[in-house]
Nucleic acid binder design. Sequence first.
DNA 1: CTGTTAGCGCCTTCAG
DNA 2: CTGAAGGCGCTAACAG
Lengths: 329, 329
Amino acid sequence: MSSIKDVARRAGVAVSTVSKALNGYPNVSRETRVKVNEAVKELNFTPNLLASALSSKKAGRVALLINLNMDSQAVDEIDMQYLSGAISTAVEKRLDVVTIFFSMLRGRSVSEIADYFHSQGIEGIIIYGMGKEDRVLQELIERKEFRIVAVDVPVVNEVTSSVQIDHGQAQYEVARKTVMENRGKSVLYLSGRPDGYVTQERLAGIRRLAMEEGLSLLIKEGDFSEKKARELTFRYASGYDVIVCASDLMAIGAMRALQEMDIFRPVCGFDGITLMCYAGMQMNTVRQDFRRISELAMQEMGRLLEGGSGRRIVPEYQIIRMQYQDVLN
Amino acid sequence: MSSIKDVARRAGVAVSTVSKALNGYPNVSRETRVKVNEAVKELNFTPNLLASALSSKKAGRVALLINLNMDSQAVDEIDMQYLSGAISTAVEKRLDVVTIFFSMLRGRSVSEIADYFHSQGIEGIIIYGMGKEDRVLQELIERKEFRIVAVDVPVVNEVTSSVQIDHGQAQYEVARKTVMENRGKSVLYLSGRPDGYVTQERLAGIRRLAMEEGLSLLIKEGDFSEKKARELTFRYASGYDVIVCASDLMAIGAMRALQEMDIFRPVCGFDGITLMCYAGMQMNTVRQDFRRISELAMQEMGRLLEGGSGRRIVPEYQIIRMQYQDVLN
DNA sequence: CTGTTAGCGCCTTCAG
DNA sequence: CTGAAGGCGCTAACAG
């Protein structure tokens, strides 16, 4: 590996000049810039990130904080989409990325975590699936020591932004479609974990629908759990016309229960994960593009890292009526 | 963030002494070691990885090279298991990890890739799902510039190891079980992509079985593709007693086809992914513990990074007869 | 516009 | 066993 020194010698200039030329500083003449670039090509020079980060105090490293829930292994798809979206746009933006699972942080205090990040040269954090009760992350955000982008959580300040779809509206529309199609008058709603931010928004959406359409509505906490959804469906489904679930996994659980009970009720899910196709389920769902959401998050991170100020972003969400489709087509 | 200097001052010793104490050098007295540790605690000192890496020329960073195939989104589970296993043991071993997708390397030459890794301070690479034809990775390994652990690929040299299950034996056993249970006399085998290393080993396994049991055997390239498996099943299944697939995804494809054809043939899969349960399929599969495999890979990487020499590791594989289980249990 | 000079935070000989 | 000094590769004032 050749260093900046070699380039300088080869180009017949000083190291600092090379540095400036490479980092796009304005005060470098056309000629020298060309000379430097030639030397770089010839030597196949690639700047040492570690050194550059140490020296400039700008590592440009961002941590992807994701919450792997090992309980329901079926949602890997979402996490992979998140990862893949974030990483690919990080490459474009020449940002370094480390993946960190929530479980690695468990039991550590906020300052321990902060120190850990600092010591790793991490300046930005993208948080996926943060809970409402998560005091530690909450505080990490409040400290404002890191640029943060929170996905699906409406927390913002000078240095943190949020990226999310409009969950309330999405829940409203997908539920509305299902109810209308089936002329339902009563709805059993299986909600997410009560400490999730999205849970509240989606609840608001279904409540608005119930209000507007004069539906009778029973809300039960399904905790995003397939199992729990199944149990709740067994208990309450017979008394309601339509079942609306705050996640696909719960919808699958509800479907399973209905099959066993041998009664029919229209069910609607939410995320639109591929699994649904494999499970052979047919229902309406919002079609979330998790990859895109994550790309946006990283995009926003890039802005923040370059000194942009935090703010809230709400990208347009899109609802695609999803029918049962054989995955093979 | 306090630096090593602060610690030195607080402990009343020189920076170099702190460094030695912290890095477990032998020539430091018991007392000073204690003093240093106290100072570290009090100041909540966390060494700066970037600086330490730059200075020592040992970054301890390892890249996870994974091959996300966006075509069949159903195998995210495996990749997530890989990631999660590798990352969690990397944390234990205090190794820094970056996740890199194959797609990010496409079109780049070997030396470009090598430079990229070097510039990132990457010393080790764990390769998941490398193909046989992959000249670039092949050469990267041959260069011996990086410590490498190849998962499921039997490539080794002084600085690269391999971690894998015994695919031949596994294929043999799972197929054997299925054939015996159904008293089959002929087998349709849907193999994986021809350039995959594991494909050959599994083929050898099924061939051995056919030989030993005197089965008639038809082998077709299924390319690990659900769609292709489906087509092949349509074409050939009726003439054979049992269908053996080199991957779960293909097994699902085969099952789908059989359902549509409305004929019954026992099918056996391979990996044992969770999806099978959701798809409502019942069949024998090897139960691979991808997480564990990845943990072993990282373990081995740790060894290599500490100067251990490369060699081949074949952990014991375990076969668990997997029945159809409702995921809710 | 270009070169000189300090560091960034840590590790590592080499004297003491 | 401990401390002083040099340097890893690069950036960032500051002079020229």
